[in-house]
Amino acid sequence: MIAYVIRRLLYVIPVLFIVSLISFSLMQLVPGDPAVVVAGLSATPDEVERVREQLGLNEPFYIQLLSWYGNLLQGDLGTSFLLGRPVVEVTVERLPVSLSIALYALVLTLVFGIVLGIIAALRQNTWVDQAVMTAALIGVSLPNFWLGLILIVVFAVHLGWLPSGGYVDFREDPWAWLRATTLPAISLAMLQMGLLARITRSTMLEVLRQDYIRTARAKGLPEHVVVGKHALKNVMIPVITVIGIIFSLLLSGSVVIETIFSIPGVGSLLGSAILRRDYPVIQGGLLLVATMLLLLNLLVDVLYAYFDPRVRYDGD
């Protein structure tokens, strides 16, 4: 087990290195003179020069690369032009907001995705199965930003049940937090719910065909024990492996959803950084999110190996 964990760690290090290299390269993709782009077209030559100085753009490429890594190792991802504060600081302080919504969406995804998938599998080829699978497919195909707008019109504007935007901290007022985050969480979760319902259904069908299920039934166990205990445990294995992917999709959606619902999270920070060309925030935000996801996947892998010892010996 320890050997497995070490092997996974050794694998993450080169990937992290390339991830940071990709983040660094984003700035090199800016066509023309990035300093002019950042300073804006109406900037005076003096202002452009100051931006160039600030970004270190007058240094040769390898110096820029070295100083990027030098700063990175000290936990410094640069300073936001827009806010005039360190990127790490502004990202980290907004992280709890995004994570709390992502976790809410994750819970919705897991509960509805798994339950609907199991129901569909148990009623295979009936109208229930077809209805659930059609809904799942539509869920996978709906653009989340559009769904968010529709939910606002229906539940906030017409029915007036929930606020159309804004955010309240959970520690201040849990009920207000729930009201503020429900519509964004649903818009974020829809895609993953559909995806997970589909995965759960096909895994469940596979598992139900196994010999040990026949044995469980043959020895007279009631159906809810066969499904709830014997089958469910084995269905959960592939579900654990996709949690990393689900989380990645949730964070992917957060830029648009937080912008639509005016939620002060990392997503809306990136959204406004894009519009104002605040490159350090874009670079740093991307790097932080990718690193977080890599570590989450590492954790998922380790948990998976812990629960299913076969994985440890499989190698790559």
Partner: peptide, 8 residues
């Protein structure tokens, strides 16, 4: 693939 699709 470590980056969320839309973010990258």
């Amino acid at each position: 693939m470590a980056f969320p699709v839309i973010l990258l």
